[in-house]
């Protein structure tokens, strides 16, 4: 990638590099979050790793003018962001920490560019949130997820931000820039809702088998979004995987139990 393109990607995805360790860890945030959510885990990693933090396009402080509705309507668009950031920084053999949907995004990216990743730490992952009885219980029915989108609409009454692009049109980037620069993009429904659809309505179970990168699956003992059966399913279908269930509640182990996440990662790395 030439330097102009690399600079464009760094700006687009608000890429930050911290720490001065010899290895590189890439931190990929989950749905509804941004890179700031890694701040609980970062102090435990930055001695040993150079940490690459970024926001997916449409999240956090990414450049909203780079958002492409077609590209980001599936997780492949977000996987391309991951690959682009690695290419922009000429990274290979990174350790990917992916929270929730970023685990699936990482698996997609690894199937396209296996040399980019040495290990992947999948925190509270789920390749599919929908139930497909009798073999797979993602935890939710389609009606639950439809209701989720409706609930998101009601909680992000960013009407002005949502309606203005429809009225302004797509050919007035300057007006868009001013308007969107004033908003915190991770709560902008224009970007968040397609991400929710791509996250919760997709089925990436078939991608698991194509991931040759060793994966540590970190599951929470009590997680309403990803039940234990999902962790077991992933461990069974990923070619190289180890499942570790942490005795905790919730879906954000990297925020609530960073020490345990780190201990499990060290143990996994030692075995590798």
């Amino acid at each position: 990638m030439n330097s102009d393109n690399a600079a464009r990607i760094v700006k687009r995805n608000n890429v930050k590099v911290v720490g001065d360790g010899s290895r590189v860890a890439m931190m990929a945030h989950g749905f509804g979050c941004d890179q700031t959510m890694w701040r609980f885990l970062m102090p435990l990693l930055e001695q040993e790793f150079r940490l690459v933090l970024f926001d997916y396009t449409g999240c956090g402080q990414s450049d909203p003018n780079c958002y492409d509705r077609d590209k980001y309507h599936t997780l492949h668009g977000y996987a391309q962001d991951l690959i682009d950031v690695c290419d922009a920084l000429s990274l290979e053999s990174v350790v990917l920490f992916g929270h929730s949907v970023s685990s699936t995004i990482g698996i997609i990216a690894a199937s396209q560019r296996p040399e980019m990743f040495a290990e992947m730490v999948l925190i509270c992952p789920s390749p599919c949130f929908l139930n497909y009885p009798p073999d797979y219980h993602g935890g939710f029915e389609k009606a639950d997820l439809e209701e989720l989108l409706n609930l998101m609409d009601k909680n992000h009454v960013g009407w002005a931000n949502y309606l203005a692009p429809l009225v302004i049109g797509e050919n007035n980037p300057e007006e868009m820039t001013v308007m969107l620069a004033d908003s915190f993009c991770s709560t902008d429904p224009m970007f968040l809702k397609p991400f929710a659809k791509a996250t919760f309505f997709s089925d990436h179970r078939a991608d698991l088998a194509a991931c040759g990168v060793p994966c540590l699956i970190l599951q929470s003992g009590h997680d309403s979004l990803a039940n234990q059966g999902i962790g077991e399913y992933m461990a069974e279908h990923l070619p190289v995987a180890s499942l570790n269930v942490i005795d905790a509640s919730g879906h954000c182990l990297h925020m609530t139990h960073p020490q345990q996440v780190m201990a499990a990662f060290r143990q996994f790395s030692r075995v590798l």
Binding site: G30, F31, G32, C33, M37, S100, F129, F140, D144, L145, E147, L148, N150, L151, M152, N155, F200, D223, S224, L225, G250, H251, C252, M255
Partner: peptide, 12 residues
């Protein structure tokens, strides 16, 4: 649906 919203967005 509220549960997903809480776990993925509100708790963080």
């Amino acid at each position: 649906a509220s549960l997903i919203f809480m776990e993925s967005y509100v708790y963080p």
